[in-house]
Design a protein around this nucleic acid. Structure first.
Lengths: 127, 127
DNA sequence: GTAGGAGCTGGAGTGCACTCCAGGTCAACC
DNA sequence: GGTTGACCTGGAGTGCACTCCAGCTCCTAC
């Protein structure tokens, strides 16, 4: 199964421009081309794109994704390094979640605090 | 108690440049000045700065923080609107956490997958 | 055979959130 | 009274991750 750039964009959630941009900066390998010179993405290509969007969603910077892509390109010999990268990235995602959760508590507090303002009309509380 | 800009930066985790930048764009009110014309932050100022860093950490864009700051500036009459903003923001933070957690599952899967590669030396698995 | 639409390239432009800089002031200490 | 160090201002520069554009080609449908 092959996919046009529009279909690849649709499937991955990236824009067409972003797909070409990712190719330009070496984040994805140049896909095959059809008889008219247009990009023709394979299922494997799509799988990689979708995985990239996960890394992006979790805040991995592009330069790190590119490093990962380059290791991947060098084959099975780099599997350990790649696993290590994902391992470390997972830790940072967990830390990020913890950070967000601690901020959530502050928001919860603030929101209930506003509730008091609204019900008792305490003056001067403007935070 | 008052604080120099360096102390405010230290306490809030923002840089000195960022403090001046936030003031310039109307995110924080201009603090008092000492006899030498230097910024002199109050405890209230610091409290606001710390709260801003929470909003920032949770990904609120500056333009929204500024909107919030402007409402706050208009006093208690805008408390409802501000509470509503925090309420909506909290929902987006929760959504973000859920998104990260779902990506974490993908990472977990990938990482255990790499484990298989390392132990059984399956060829061709390069994702 | 031509009009329309998708896709192509190289390169310029955008928005966000800072970050840095030059050139100056001010207070304190030696 | 000179040097040092923190701070001041307005404005320019940075890094990231896209996003847009002009001008072109190619295929399909009428």
């Amino acid at each position: 199964m092959t996919y046009s750039i529009a279909q690849a964009a649709e499937h991955s959630g990236l824009s067409i421009d972003t797909l070409r941009y990712y190719e330009r900066i070496g984040l994805v390998d140049p896909p095959a081309r059809d008889s008219g010179g247009r990009r023709s993405y394979s299922d494997d290509d799509l799988g990689w794109l979708v995985f990239l969007t996960r890394l992006r969603t979790t805040g991995m910077p592009i330069r790190m994704m590119r490093e990962y892509a380059q290791l991947r390109h060098r084959g099975a010999a780099t599997a350990g390094r790649r696993k290590q990268m994902l391992f470390e990235h997972r830790a940072s995602v967990r830390a990020r979640i913890a950070e967000l959760q601690s901020c959530l508590e502050v928001l919860d507090y603030k929101i209930s605090h506003y509730g008091e303002i609204e019900h008792t009309f305490i003056e001067g509380i403007t935070a």
